[in-house]
Design a protein around this nucleic acid. Structure first.
Lengths: 138, 138
DNA sequence: CGGGATCCCTGCCGATACTG
DNA sequence: CAGTATCGGCAGGGATCCCG
């Protein structure tokens, strides 16, 4: 990595290496890990549910109450997608009425750490973004 | 923060605090910093362009070549949105033919650091995700 | 309680053509 | 070269109803 004497950490150089290295493989761009992961966590609800489950395991109804503005269709679907990718586990307790518990898997918990950085950045810089946005001409 | 003796870092506790603290303010959920930022970087091209610009400043055509599968409509639009949020700068050189240079702002560069964590996670765990995905019943 | 099935609409995004 | 303008598909996602 060429030194750039910038204020940031080692982030600069490493970032695009990932993309370029992948591009050089000739593999279809759609399978790029960065794109694949970002597609998943970039949807409307995944991250929010991950954060909610980071707190503690939740039942279906708990999640609805924790994220009031999600439709149960999207709740079901997002949970299934997260489970499909191995980020959360789904446990059915054969009680009556049924009870289903969702919790993060080890893989899902490992995602929390990079997410935490992003969230801290969001909180720290949200004001700056909103300011820039307001100052921008229509 | 209650100790949980989990394997992860201090991530767990801090994460949801952000959401909950915001929820408690009674402010509209739509203005939650986490949601707002995620909405922006979660779209199809923003992150990819940020990463490309992390390498070096690019002209419009350079970006098209660097990200081959983006339409010029989305390139224009995504660049404008990123500029609007103060993440990149747009400099027009009054040459003929015109030349426009895009580069990260300081704010944009600061976003690279949390993004780098996410990308490293994506690279490290992409295989696990694909495995889980393949093993999941239709 | 925890979903599945269906209807429908918005807006994201691609393709194409045109301009300074 | 660096855009703008317009059209159109279709997938993301909400609302509602139904079921074990």
């Amino acid at each position: 990595m060429k030194s750039k004497a910038s204020a940031s950490t080692a982030a600069d150089g490493c970032l695009t290496d990932a993309i370029k290295a992948y591009r050089d493989t000739g593999a279809p761009l759609e399978q790029c890990p960065v794109r694949d992961v970002l597609d998943q966590i970039g949807d409307k609800w995944s991250t929010l549910l991950m954060l909610t489950l980071a707190e503690r395991a939740h039942r279906f109804g708990d999640l609805r109450r924790a994220v009031p503005d999600i439709s149960q269709r999207m709740l079901t679907q997002t949970l299934r997608d997260l489970q499909r990718d191995g980020l959360i586990s789904r446990t059915v307790h054969p009680t009556v009425p049924p009870s289903v518990e969702y919790k993060l898997t080890t893989l899902g918990q490992s995602l929390l750490e990079p997410l935490a950085h992003l969230i801290r950045w969001a909180e720290a810089n949200h004001a700056a973004i909103r300011t820039a946005r307001a100052a921008f001409p229509a």
